[in-house]
Design a protein around this nucleic acid. Structure first.
Lengths: 334, 334
DNA sequence: CCTATAATGCTCTGTTGGAGTATAAGACAA
DNA sequence: TTGTCTTATACTCCAACAGAGCATTATAGG
């Protein structure tokens, strides 16, 4: 079992036996959540008939994890990877075959959608097809009230233990905004995990060995619970979305998803697509401008229907000039 | 080289040849940044004469990474690990021997200091002995002006390229708060990296193969640049400190470092120790109380010198009741 | 010319966070 | 006993900011 290295009381057997992999051999995978926003839709790059995130082995040739991911994504998709950030690392015995440990290191990357040659089965897909309850731009999606909440409340009220009942009820209220609470768009992962625990996510059934199935789990793979993915890819995607929704509020990363020049409304729509909720237009503009995040190009667009809008360009200088910067997107409460 | 799995154009040789480790074998390490606050000092658990963070191999027996870390730390130190959070995962070819990749997964853990049997060489040490420039509780440490800034400015002004010069100058100003800028206590990692690049950190010399040494690097391992650690452990520690300093502002994690009952001043001192700067007492209390993070025990302390203080207890309920909670510690600017 | 759609400018207001003042309650020394 | 030191605790002030709404301007299309 584990010992502090250097304090190690006894060298493990494997240390002495195996030749080069001095310790338990482990495989490492890189998994990418690649995001682009196209025509008001936040999309992720998927493979395998849209049921998986792109992933690949981490190899000796790679200098570092991030370099490995970058090289690999850019070769495969010809996408300019603007921003890359590590998400999370996990290891489950379930994942590898034959009890071998596979460590998965997931990354979030921002680009602009672009279909390149070489992407055989890869395709972009709206992330809301995996998490339909996350899109509140047109108000709370009716499926929450109609489909999710009844099931969640049934799950919350199921246990004998009143403490557990209260706990579950609270979690439902917090994550899905029941009882007058405001919707918090950042709780993407918590919501997914709640639905998972409540058995409304088909993936939950696959994970439990047959027979161990908790009552209620995946008896009915709830219509409207979103498209499933292989393994825990949907959880990884949820992690990525949550991270991105949090990040756009204090770091100017949205611009990695925008074309060279854009109007303020386009920028706003992009933020709204990510956040899954509308923002107050005037306040949004005030915030962007007072932070000097953009500069006018001098041109205007022929436009879409109204008064022509000025075109802007991201001031890349702010990335070096400021420590915190931040597009604190003013999300409306209405 | 890497391919998207499932899109893979050709199976790699290793896939066909090797038996169980289907791909390039890799070793994984867990590295722990264990923090406690004792008598106003934020301390980390170290080994090897205080030159290394405790670490150990991740093994097949472990169910998951976090479980592995928890089990392992608790067995070794008998510490109740209140809070554990993954920090970062990295892999450098330099790290392993013989070109083997070692993946290191670092964790941050909060406890209370406690020397248990079995900790042969382990000891707690103030994190400010590794980062003396980070403690601003008694005002800006004089060594910044006296030792660091001159060297940093020399480094910033060294290049021919005026753009690069300006860039470096800006980074110095942002991270070390020159030119009227406020000190941002969260930029721990950026500061360390800057010092590293500028060659003021002994570790930088070790990393470069002999001959590749950039001019100025570690020619003199600057007195006052803090105690070095092995490999990149000091960078990991910097990551942990930065994360913790950010976290205490929006999650009630400080309480994991406190005894069962405490006075508000004790709590404040703990936050100040972590943040490395003083907070406004009255505002701090207002914030803590208005958030219902604590409840009175009814008792008071015999005290340290002044009017007796009420004792408080953390209301653990808030952890389940709230999504965001947050101890937004009001840091004074003075 | 009228209407629809955006862009853009400006105001109002409630909340919050930083900072300061004032008072209370003990310990301790002269 | 009294004054002083130290800390706890209660309140007040003010500026900055964020949410929300109103008003005006500029186009396209009938």
């Amino acid at each position: 079992m584990g010992t502090f290295r250097e304090i190690g009381i006894a060298a493990e057997a494997s240390k002495l036996a195996a030749p080069v992999p001095a310790r338990d051999a482990i495989a490492a995978d890189l998994i990418a959540v690649l995001v682009a926003v196209t025509s008001g839709d936040p999309r992720v790059l998927t493979i395998q008939d849209q049921s998986a995130l792109p992933s690949g082995p981490f190899e000796l040739a790679h200098r570092s994890l991030q370099a490995g991911l970058r090289a690999w994504v850019e070769r495969q998709t010809r996408l300019p990877l603007g921003y890359v950030e590590q998400l999370y690392t996990f290891a489950d015995r379930d994942r590898g075959s034959a009890g071998q440990h596979v460590i998965s290191i997931s990354y979030l990357g921002l680009t602009r959608e672009q279909l390149a040659s070489g992407e055989h089965e890869a395709s972009w897909r709206s992330w809301y097809s995996y998490f339909p309850w996350e899109d509140h731009r047109a108000g709370t999606p009716p499926m929450i009230e109609a489909a999710l909440l009844p099931r969640l409340e049934a799950w919350a009220n199921a246990p004998q233990n009143p403490g557990l009942r209260q706990d579950r009820g609270q979690r439902v209220a917090i994550t899905f905004g029941g009882g007058g609470r405001a919707w918090d768009e950042e709780l993407v992962l918590q919501r997914y995990e709640l639905l998972y625990e409540a058995g409304l996510i088909p993936e939950a059934a696959r994970a439990s060995p047959p027979g161990t199935l908790r009552p209620g789990v995946a008896a009915t793979p709830l219509p409207g619970a979103g498209q499933p993915m292989i393994l825990d890819h949907r959880r990884i995607l949820a992690t990525g979305i949550a991270r991105l929704r949090a990040k756009i509020k204090y770091r100017p990363v949205v611009f990695e998803l925008m074309p060279e020049t854009f109007t303020l409304l386009q920028l706003q729509r992009c933020v709204e697509a990510l956040a899954g909720r509308l923002v107050h237009k005037q306040n949004f503009r005030r915030l962007i401008e007072q932070q000097d995040l953009v500069e006018e190009t001098g041109e205007t667009t022929p436009d879409t229907g109204g008064r022509p809008a000025k075109l802007f360009r991201f001031r890349r200088e702010v990335l070096t000039q400021r420590a915190i910067a931040g597009t604190k997107l003013p999300v409306s409460r209405a």
